[in-house]
Simulated scan of single mutants.
Amino acid sequence: MTALAAFSIATSSLANANDLVLKDSLEGPDFTDAGGLYYKENYEQSAGTFEFQQDVMRNGKGALKLTIRPICPTSKDGCSERAEIWERPELRVPYDQGVWYGFAVKFADPIPQDDHRYLIAQWKREIDPGAEGDFSPFLALRLRKGKLFATVETNYVAQGAIEKPSEPCDAGAVPVWLRPDTNQMRALVATDTAWTPEDGKLYASCTSAIQVIDHGNKLPAPNSGWIDFAVYTKPGPDGSGHIELYANGKPIVTIKGHIGHADQGLGPNQYFKFGPYRAANAGEWTLYYDDFRRSPHCKDVLVGAPCNF
């Protein structure tokens, strides 16, 4: 019996995939069965390459190098370029359950400095074939003008929304980009130290439907070397959502309230994918990843800090 077959049998005997502890040191020569990861093949992913290399690493004998290059024709509106690593569908966690994720990332030079759509990791809800709408990740780690930031997305909630206030958001409210035309809104929940008000001009409104507890630590700068993230995700479009975001063992923010989407045509599971993703652009962009882990237990994922729940 192969390792993959044995792993599949073990998985099928569990109540659900949330009971699994997944780990992959990303040293190669391929993704491990115990990590449950794969490189998805489609047109946008053809912009990317993945390489298990041994020149740049955080731990062990190597790390995963992901690179994207331009492929989109100028006439193809909305085309994106990706080199994303996905969780295998049979291992995804139910949308209403909480789970911890961990991974380390290092930005290769040059780090993009333009005002463009760049993501390095995202958490989403499954979308059924034929579902209407384009649903953004309920949590995303993003880059803008060489600065790292995080956003949380949910359905548009009119109650507690203030469009373009004259003053900064009141206590208990967070900056948000209201998008009622797509039944979504995106909150700005964490930034690095270089972030300025001008960088956040898109988030010109406020909402009290999402609460952010700031723990006094900013996201690390992209040029600071390896960044080890530990993230707890439990979507709750009804207001019961909960996210914990740590970087390099330091608590960054706790997010509660309306998190994620509850539209018709969406699937039963959440899923995570990481790797460089951008709107069509020129040049190459490279990121390195190491030490992937996933568990229902904080202690298996969070390194360098106590698990408080």
Rank of each mutant, 00 (worst) to 15 (best):
A63C: 01
K124P: 01
T2K: 06
S205V: 01
D55W: 00
Q184P: 14
F50E: 11
A194K: 07
L245C: 05
N217I: 05
I227F: 06
Y203I: 03
G267A: 15
T67V: 15
G36I: 15
G78C: 09
P29I: 12
W100I: 13
L178K: 00
A15L: 14
L20W: 01
E44G: 02
E87P: 06
F31S: 06
M57G: 03
C307N: 05
C72R: 00
S208V: 02
G133H: 02
T191N: 13
T151H: 04
K273M: 15
P168K: 00
E51D: 15
A280L: 04
W285T: 09
R125D: 11
P29Q: 09
D19W: 06
D19I: 00
F103P: 02
G275D: 10
R144H: 14
I85V: 13
Q122L: 05
N183E: 07
K106Q: 12
Q53M: 05
N217F: 10
G241V: 04
A158I: 07
T154Q: 04
A221T: 12
W195K: 07
G35T: 11
P89R: 12
T233K: 00
D170C: 00
D114S: 14
V105A: 10
G265K: 15
L219W: 06
S25F: 11
P251K: 14
E167G: 00
K65E: 06
R179T: 07
P268D: 07
V157L: 02
I120C: 08
I255K: 01
S46L: 10
A108D: 14
K61H: 00
S12F: 04
Y288A: 06
A63W: 00
A209L: 08
F274M: 05
L188Y: 11
N42Y: 09
M57P: 01
I213D: 11
C307E: 03
K145T: 06
G78H: 05
S25E: 15
Y289F: 14
K65M: 08
L219M: 05
G160L: 12
H261M: 05
P251G: 04
K145W: 04
P251Y: 04
K23D: 14
S75C: 04
N248F: 08
H261A: 05
Q54K: 07
G60H: 03
V174W: 08
T193A: 15
H261I: 00
T151G: 09
S12M: 08
R144S: 14
A15F: 13
K124A: 09
